[in-house]
Design a protein around this nucleic acid. Structure first.
Lengths: 244, 244
DNA sequence: CGCAGCTTTGAGAATCCTCAACTATTGTGG
DNA sequence: CCACAATAGTTGAGGATTCTCAAAGCTGCG
C-alpha cells in the first residue's frame, strides 16, 4: 500500500510527538500523485484550493506576484514539505505555488486534514506548528535580505538548504544537489542573474564551496556559517524537550 | 468588566465568522495588562513563554537576532494584533518580541487559548488563520525587500501600515500616526538611518507625502500605491465569501 | 542650560545593476 | 549524427543606488 504522507509524517516527527494512533491516522490519508514539469503553476494567485500540495520529488516555491505579472520567490520547499499547508486555514491564495524543477506532488484534500485536525489534538498542534516554522523561515529570510550583501545571502541560503536537505534525508549538510538555475537563485536572493554568477565565483575563489553544474559541495562549512551569521535554531530541528 | 480580548476579537471578525458563543468564549478570557517603555523586550530569543502578547497600545515588533547581538525588525504589530500568537504552537522563541514605543500589552495565557482551540472549531480555524496571515505579510515583505529600492520599500510600508491602522480603527489610510524613529524604520526597511532620511525627503519633494514629526499624511495615495506596486489582497482584509 | 537622542546634510567609496556580448550546454527535427 | 534553436552560464564596462564616515542642527527634558 502506498502511503502518500509517509515523508511528511517523518518530517512532522522531528518537531512533534505523535502517538501511534496519530501517525496511523495521518498515514491513512489518501492523495493523488501528479507529476509536473518545471515552471508549472501548482497554484495560481487568486485560486481557491481544497487540497494542500505535498512535495514528493523536486523543488517547489512560494512566489509573490506583482501587478505587472513579475514574481519573486520567497521560500522553497523540498521533498517531504507541505508547500501550502496554510491553505487549509486560508484556501484563497494571494500567491503562487510553482514548480522550480520537474516535480511530483501529492494533492492532500483539506477535508482529510481538517477531520484529523478536529479529532486529534496532537495533530492539530503539529500542523499549526508546521505553518509557524514556515513563518519562522520567512522571518529569518526577511532579516537576511535586509542586513546582508549578496555573498552572505547566498551563504545563508546554502546553509539553510543543506540543513533542510539533510533533515529530509536527501544529502548531507556539506554535500547536496541544488537543481536551480542562476535565474531562479537570483529571484530568491533578490539580486540579478549576473550578480549570482559573480557571487558564486567569489565563494568558489575563496575555496569555501565547490560546484560542478548543480551539485554543491561545501568545503569549509564553518567559514560558510560565519559568513552567513547562520544560527540554525530558527529551523526548529532540535526540539528535544518540546511540548506535545 | 474589562474585556482584554475585545480588540482582538474585532480583528478576528474581519477574517472569520464567529458565533455569539465563540465570541463570548474569547471575551471571557482574562489577561494581565502591563505597560512597558520603548525598547523593552517582551520576549527574548530563547525564552519559553506560556502566554501570547496582545498589543493594546503602541507598536511592537518581531525581531531576528544574530550572533553578534544585532537585530533586524521583520514585522511590526499595531494595537489589536496578537504579536506572537504563534507561540501557542511553538512556545520557545528563536526571535525577540520588543516594544518599539511605550506600549501596553495583555499577556494572554496559552492554556486559555488552547482550551478554546479544542472546544471551538471555529476559533481554532480563526487562530490558525491569523498566524497564516502573519506569514503572508512576511512573505510579501520578503518580495518587497528583494525587488524594490528604498523609496518603493518605504512606499509599500506606508501603504500596508495605513491599511492596518485603518482596520484597527486608529486612523485613515492616508492619515495616521507612525511613532517610529528613523533608526527603527531603517531596521525595518533594510537600509541605513541616513538613507531613510533621504528616502523620506524624496517622497516629500515629489509631493506624495507630508510629514510633520511622526504624523504621516499621504497626499497622493494612488501614486504611492503605484510606486509600491501595492496590492492589498495579501492582507486578507476583504474576506467576503470566506469559509467558516 | 546642557545633555541625550533624533534628524538633516555632505562627500567619497562599495555594492549591485544595466546593457551587451560571447560561450557552453541541452534539446529537437531532419 | 548533424544543424540549429533554446536555455544557461560567463565576462566586461559604465552607471545607479546605497553605505560609511563625519559633522551640524533640532527637540525635549531634567
Amino acid at each position: 500500500m502506498v502511503r502518500p504522507l509517509s515523508r511528511f509524517v517523518q518530517r512532522l516527527e522531528l518537531r512533534n510527538i505523535l502517538s501511534d494512533e496519530d501517525r496511523d491516522a495521518l498515514l491513512a490519508i489518501d492523495a493523488n500523485r501528479s507529476q509536473k514539469p518545471a515552471r508549472w503553476d501548482l497554484v495560481r494567485p487568486g485560486d481557491e484550493v481544497d487540497y494542500a500540495c505535498l512535495v514528493d520529488q523536486g523543488i517547489v516555491a512560494r512566489a509573490e506576484q506583482f501587478a505587472d505579472g513579475r514574481r519573486n520567490t520567497t521560500v522553497i520547499y523540498v521533498p517531504g514539505d507541505m508547500a501550502d499547508l496554510h491553505s487549509v486555514a486560508l484556501p484563497r491564495a494571494a500567491w503562487a505555488i510553482t514548480a522550480l524543477t520537474d516535480c511530483a506532488v501529492y494533492k492532500v484534500p483539506h477535508v482529510s486534514l481538517k477531520r484529523l485536525f478536529r479529532d486529534h489534538p496532537a495533530i492539530a498542534t503539529a500542523l499549526w506548528r508546521d505553518t509557524v516554522v514556515d513563518a519562522s523561515i520567512l522571518s529569518k529570510w526577511v532579516s537576511v535580505l535586509s542586513r546582508h550583501t549578496a555573498d552572505r545571502r547566498l551563504a545563508h541560503l546554502l546553509c539553510e538548504y543543506g540543513y533542510r536537505m539533510a533533515a529530509a534525508g536527501l544529502g548531507r549538510r556539506e554535500d547536496f544537489d541544488l537543481p536551480l538555475t542562476q535565474a531562479q537563485l537570483a529571484e530568491l536572493l533578490g539580486v540579478t542573474e549576473v550578480h549570482v554568477q559573480r557571487t558564486f565565483r567569489t565563494l568558489r575563489d575563496k575555496g569555501i564551496i565547490e560546484g560542478e553544474r548543480r551539485t554543491i559541495r561545501i568545503l569549509d562549512l564553518g567559514k560558510l556559517e560565519r559568513i552567513a551569521e547562520f544560527d540554525a535554531r530558527y529551523l526548529m530541528l532540535d526540539m528535544s524537550g518540546h511540548h506535545p
